[in-house]
Amino acid sequence: MKDQKIINLILEGNELGFIKLANKYEKLLFYIAKSILGNRIEDVEECVNDTYLKLWNNIDKYDSDKASLKTYLIIIVRNTAINKLRDLSKHEKNQISDDITDIAKYYIDNKQNLEKSIFDKEDLSKLNTLIKNLKSVDQEIIIRKYFYLQSSKHIARVMDMTVTAVDSRSSRTRKILQKEFEKEDEEVIRKENKYE
């Protein structure tokens, strides 16, 4: 069934819309949730169910010109999984699956404030532009590693690269991003000094 038909059914409040949605995207959503939350099935299931619920509550905000339904669902499930990872780590460490990736472990171990961070709109737009301008290989590595929280080993396997190459490329890209942000900060300070 086409996405627009599914959306129309959900907008009508027809349960069939959700059945069709699940038939079409359930595997994808489970795959993404599992790559972030590990193999604990109850966490993954809860995350996917929350994704459906969020879609149900926000279907009127969905704009098909901005994103396909699939991409919209990917964003919801990824962010729901990250929130869940933070929530689980808030309580007790043993509530988290043992097999989460190193980057997911690093995230919960090093996130000082476990609340959701708020960012400047300009910074977010700058980051998006910088990522868009990256080489396609580096763009893929950054998205796989820091959006989907995939392990370097997995990325290396699917991209036919070595783990070292993945790690060095991602580290180099992060340095480039950092430099670009610092450059802008310096410019802002320079401008402020000029006007003083």
Partner: peptide, 25 residues
């Protein structure tokens, strides 16, 4: 860039950057 910050910032990734079917691949 700090990895934790990058993960948090990518929560606001523009949809067009996700149109490539990495996961489906």
């Amino acid at each position: 860039m700090n990895e934790v910050k990058l993960i948090d910032m990518l929560s606001y990734l523009e949809p067009e950057l996700l149109e490539d079917d990495y996961i489906e691949k």
